[in-house]
Design a protein around this nucleic acid. Structure first.
Length: 758
DNA sequence: CCCATCACTTAGAATAACGACG
DNA sequence: CGTCGTTATTCTAAGTGATGGG
């Protein structure tokens, strides 16, 4: 897998140095003694056990001890308080409800003329109360008032142009689609929603996610089609006809034959075991060795098939496309609170072989086919319930409006639940996303205080507090993930901050001319390697030394900490604060800073975009968002270089021509030659612009070799920062966000102006 | 408290669609 | 008008964190 990815110590390591630079002014007091004793105790209790692996047991014991020691400690009181609060909020929630029962729900239908939903007629008085940001709230109101006067929303701001353009096209299409699909009902009107601005409406405050939900249920994987007779499976060199069940599973393997997965031992073992479960007694007794199985004919067959698909005529492709659109039209949307919303994944995952990431102990296992009987449907009681396919039934139909999913099933590999949910452009996802950034902005207001506090806690005499403080420092400075504990053997061995082990960290009192360097090397989410060398403050360093003392490589660094403890602490520091908020906060604030640092007002558009990408890249590096270098990377780089060279030649040729034209003009003094000069000048200018564009592109691409920008853009960067930047520098928003992204961030595009500050 | 369960966000790879170019 | 390379979309795995029952 992509185990050995890049090294990026510089950027992420140095990012926060400014804010942390008051190096060791105080002397590092030695609390070591006390802690040391504790450690010894712990070590004893642990290692008397012949099996010293079980760190959770260790933690458990420690926690008990800790508890005994600090029985009087405040945590009890906190709990009490929380319980009270909970009760309070519960009852108030009850009252809260929504005063305006269905103000949300009914206006839409009546509000349209000639097929255009006109937002201006709506009751705008209902402003959503945002729990967290008043300024936000006010500015929104102003904005709305402005909109009152524009009926068809003339382009009062440039970004609206794009939006208009962009939206008109698909909309016309979807209008037709929607009609024959779920549309129809409720007054049978045409497409009411042109750009529904859910962000200008009130949110539910009672914890419910919707009032009305209707959908058609999921689309199931197509049934298995048997192979033609001439495509055979061979066992031990002899052709062997398999039963349908066994054959289907065999095709899963055959389809992956030239993937390196199939060479891995665990994969093969798991596959074979599960495959045999699908075999009849006869098959089972004959097929006993995977190495004697020959899937090559099957594999070839599928290759030819996909080749054929590619070679298909235009009409054939068109047909498939239309059929697909029909399916999307019928099943791809739902009706939620009177708005038609796109579903994110309405297709049930087809059966196949499980492909875990990294060193996954379950790779190759059979992911079984999902039937209607496995599906739980969620919709509102008063909706038209989805019909199960003929001859089948749903596992259950429920009406739970405290959740957002439309359907769910339990997957057989890990036993986890899979959901069908709405598209990111939907209200329900958008609101949550917006809220996430508001929480991060609230953190901005108190982050310095929190930093001061954890720095202070580095000196605490309690081990658990020190650990908590150092972990939090990592999470803040390095944007590490929280690191929940995972069940061993259930998935790849990856870690986050709280689950870091001794083997992942090495301490260098001095390295490359720097003091107190911490070297981190571990596999994080998706088994992506995190490798970083970070100079830290002395106190952190000393603490880490202490944490590592007398431990085995496989022991936890933070043995008195877990995510739940950490998050409980964070919750006390700020409402809604959890470890992941730091990632969002640091990502967004970094983008904002980098943008203001990197953008040169005089630059032209491509150069500004390069700056944007660089700012984006700084964030991706911080968050360790990597990708495998594209297979065609080298080649495409060469191509680009060739283009650049060609352009250079053209340019110098053009320059020469310009020169001689000038000479001509000087000699001739006539209009014609003067004009020629002008033309040549223009040509040179054009060429040099093109050259520079290419060069910028090359730089950008090179720097991006194994860095993935998409993830941070989609999940960590407050879109309003980008929108504001675009407005400020008059960069078309399309240069930054593609269509999907613009749909997801419609709320931000609509509400952020050029002065927005995260 | 502690663990399992549930809901939901975040993630990179695979695949499909698009568009520039010969 | 096909081919190739890039970009967008789809897919689903793998995280986080809340909750509730024992």
């Amino acid at each position: 897998m992509t185990g050995d990815h890049g090294h990026h110590q510089v950027e992420s390591g140095s990012r926060l140095n400014d804010s942390h630079k008051h190096k060791d002014k105080h002397k590092d007091k030695e609390h070591r003694h006390k802690d040391h004793k504790k450690d010894k105790e712990r070590e004893k209790s642990k290692y008397t056990n012949s099996e010293h692996r079980d760190s959770s047991e260790k933690k458990h014991k420690d926690r008990e001890k800790e508890r005994a020691k600090h029985r009087e400690d405040s945590s009890e009181r906190h709990k009490e308080k929380k319980r009270e609060e909970k009760l309070k909020s519960h009852s108030s929630n009850g009252k809260h409800k929504r005063e305006k029962e269905n103000g949300y729900v009914s206006y839409i239908k009546t509000e349209e003329d000639n097929g255009y939903y006109n937002p201006t007629k709506q009751e705008k008085t209902v402003k959503r109360e945002r729990d967290d940001d008043e300024s936000e709230y006010k500015s929104k109101k102003i904005k709305v008032e402005k909109e009152h006067k524009v009926k068809k929303r003339k382009q009062e701001e440039d970004y609206d142009d794009y939006e208009e353009e962009e939206d008109v096209k698909p909309k016309k299409k979807s209008k037709e689609k929607k009609e024959d699909a779920a549309g129809g009902k409720k007054k049978g009107k045409k497409e009411p929603e042109e750009k529904w601005k859910w962000w200008e409406e009130e949110r539910y405050t009672d914890g419910s996610k919707w009032r009305f939900l209707e959908h058609k249920g999921p689309v199931f994987a197509p049934p298995y089609e048997r192979l033609p007779e001439n495509v055979r499976f061979y066992y031990d060199g002899k052709p062997m006809k398999l039963t349908e069940q066994a054959e289907e599973v065999a095709t899963f393997f055959a389809k992956m034959l030239d993937h390196e997965y199939t060479t891995k031992d665990i994969f093969r073992k798991n596959f074979f075991k599960d495959w045999r479960k699908e075999m009849t007694f006869e098959e089972k007794s004959r097929i006993t060795d995977l190495n004697k199985c020959n899937f090559v004919e099957m594999s070839e067959y599928f290759k030819v098939q996909s080749e054929n698909r590619k070679q298909m005529t235009k009409e054939g492709k068109q047909k498939i496309k239309e059929e697909n659109e029909r399916l999307v039209g019928e099943y791809g949307y739902c009706l939620m609170d009177n708005h038609k919303e796109r579903i994110g994944n309405f297709r049930i995952e087809p059966p196949g072989l499980f492909r875990g990431r990294g060193d996954h102990p379950k790779m190759g296992m059979l992911k079984r086919r999902i039937r209607p009987e496995d599906i739980i449907i969620n919709c509102s009681k008063d909706s038209k319930h989805p019909k199960p396919p003929p001859g089948s039934r749903w596992k259950e139909v429920r009406h739970d409006n405290k959740v957002t999913w439309l359907a769910s099933w339990t997957e057989n590999i890990q036993g986890s639940i899979k959901y069908i949910m709405l598209n990111p452009s939907s209200r329900i996802k958008g609101e949550k996303d917006w809220q996430k950034y508001e929480t991060a902005r609230r953190l901005k207001k108190c982050v310095e205080k929190i930093r001061a506090q954890y720095r202070d806690d580095w000196k605490s005499k309690e081990m658990r507090i020190r650990q908590r403080a150092v972990a939090l420092y990592f999470i803040d400075k390095l944007a590490l993930r929280a690191g929940n504990e995972k069940e061993e053997g259930e998935s790849a061995d990856t870690v986050g901050c709280c689950s870091l082990r001794v083997e992942h960290i090495s301490l260098h009192p001095e390295m490359d001319g720097q003091e107190f360097v911490v070297e981190l090397d571990f596999l994080g989410k998706d088994s992506i390697r995190y490798y970083n060398k970070i100079p830290v403050e002395k106190r952190v360093f000393k603490n880490l030394q202490l944490f590592l003392e007398n431990k085995q490589p496989e022991d936890d660094v933070f043995d008195r900490l877990n995510t739940s403890i950490l998050n409980k602490h964070l919750q006390e520091l700020m409402d809604g604060l959890t470890a992941k908020v730091f990632r969002t906060y640091n990502a967004s604030i970094t983008l904002q800073q980098q943008l203001s640092q990197l953008t040169t007002p005089e630059d032209n558009v491509p150069a500004k975009i390069l700056s944007y990408n660089r700012a984006n890249r700084a964030v991706a590096i911080l968050c360790n968002h990597q990708r495998a270098p594209p297979k065609t990377f080298e080649k495409s780089m060469q191509n680009l270089q060739a283009k650049i060279d060609a352009k250079k030649d053209q340019l110098s040729a053009a320059k020469k021509e310009l020169k001689s034209a000038k000479a001509d003009a000087k000699a001739m003094h006539d209009e014609k030659s003067k004009k020629a000069v002008e033309t040549k000048k223009k040509a040179v200018q054009r060429l040099s612009e093109q050259l520079m564009k290419l060069e910028v592109q090359a730089t950008d691409r090179e720097e991006n070799k194994q860095i993935a920008l998409g993830t941070s853009k989609l999940n960590y960067l407050d879109p309003r920062i980008s929108v504001a930047w675009c407005k400020k520098w008059e960069i078309p928003i399309e240069k930054i966000y593609n269509k999907t992204q613009r749909e997801k961030f419609a709320w931000a595009i609509d509400m952020a102006d050029k002065d927005y500050e995260f």
